[in-house]
Design a protein around this nucleic acid. Sequence first.
DNA 1: AGGTGCATGTAACAGGTTACATGATTAA
DNA 2: TTAATCATGTAACCTGTTACATGCACCT
Lengths: 183, 183
Amino acid sequence: MDAAQLSPTGRVILGMIALGRRTGYEIKQLVDHSTRHFWAASYGQIYPELRRLEEGGLIKGRPEGSGGRTKIAYELTPEGSRALYDWLSSDAPLVFEMRNEGMLKLFFSDVAPETKLAQIRAMRSHYERQRAELHAIGKDPSEMTTGPGMTLDLGLGLVEWLIEWCLKAEDRLATAATGGVKA
Amino acid sequence: MDAAQLSPTGRVILGMIALGRRTGYEIKQLVDHSTRHFWAASYGQIYPELRRLEEGGLIKGRPEGSGGRTKIAYELTPEGSRALYDWLSSDAPLVFEMRNEGMLKLFFSDVAPETKLAQIRAMRSHYERQRAELHAIGKDPSEMTTGPGMTLDLGLGLVEWLIEWCLKAEDRLATAATGGVKA
DNA sequence: AGGTGCATGTAACAGGTTACATGATTAA
DNA sequence: TTAATCATGTAACCTGTTACATGCACCT
């Protein structure tokens, strides 16, 4: 199993284990607090994938009987490290997918022009929520040249740009509505 | 069938028909030249969905026997118009999904720091390609307050911001690599 | 005694892509 | 005649979500 055959979720899992996360539960936690905005994962994917990765020899799990119910801590095998590294250094075409219902509505908004303002406001409020979440994550200010740090910087800059765009668009619409005369 | 039950692809189809597109083929064409970057659709979705929408009474198709093979031109029924309008003016939570493998690699890049520069360059080259495509679409300069025009403006601004971010990040990394001394 | 968080897991479903099959029209 | 473009359609597959089931540990 090399990088080319590594499933999308498999890559996230390998990466998270490399960052020190051990159990499926912990992986899900970290995904929800970090990569979620640009790469999500659900339990329904994570647990079956952990099993597949172990069958493929990329990770090795051992039950930790710390008193309670068995929890399984995974770590990378040498092959797993190599697969992760191969993926990271591969120049295969990247997956860039997006489904943005806000933009879709905007695209069709000429059909109902009076809804435009509300749509942009809805979009802005989404990104403002996202900004707040990212700020919460960013409490501990990691270096801008570390992976998670860079990603956070990118994400925050992006949502801030989007919020600015919305504000300007709202302004433009308001001006247009009052016949070009600023209120 | 009201807006709440309208499937994602159904919304795109309804919108495209409202914008004047009639056949499944034409809808796919327009999607590929416009909404693709923030909302894609494949034939495998479009044709079955056209049938479902017709069964639901939202659109009505009639075969156009312009000589050759029957092609089917659809138009909105009054209920279809209403469903589209309902969706556009609804304040139900919006779908915002993203899978960005570039950011994912960046997130894990501390595992292989020497790949960082290449990753950011790959990301930039993706967005530069996208910018070129958007510029090609934007040949006819539509008003910034029309739906497609606004969306194009938003998309272009976004990719330009991303390209700038990449350039700055590349700079920062290059500087860090030479021990803080600019080359 | 009950709620919350840790922890694992699966079955049913939804949504979408890819590859293929088919065939007419049009331009070189 | 051949290639490209217009045009419709489906079956197999893949990926992922949602909702549920289970149960321990810890706090109040």
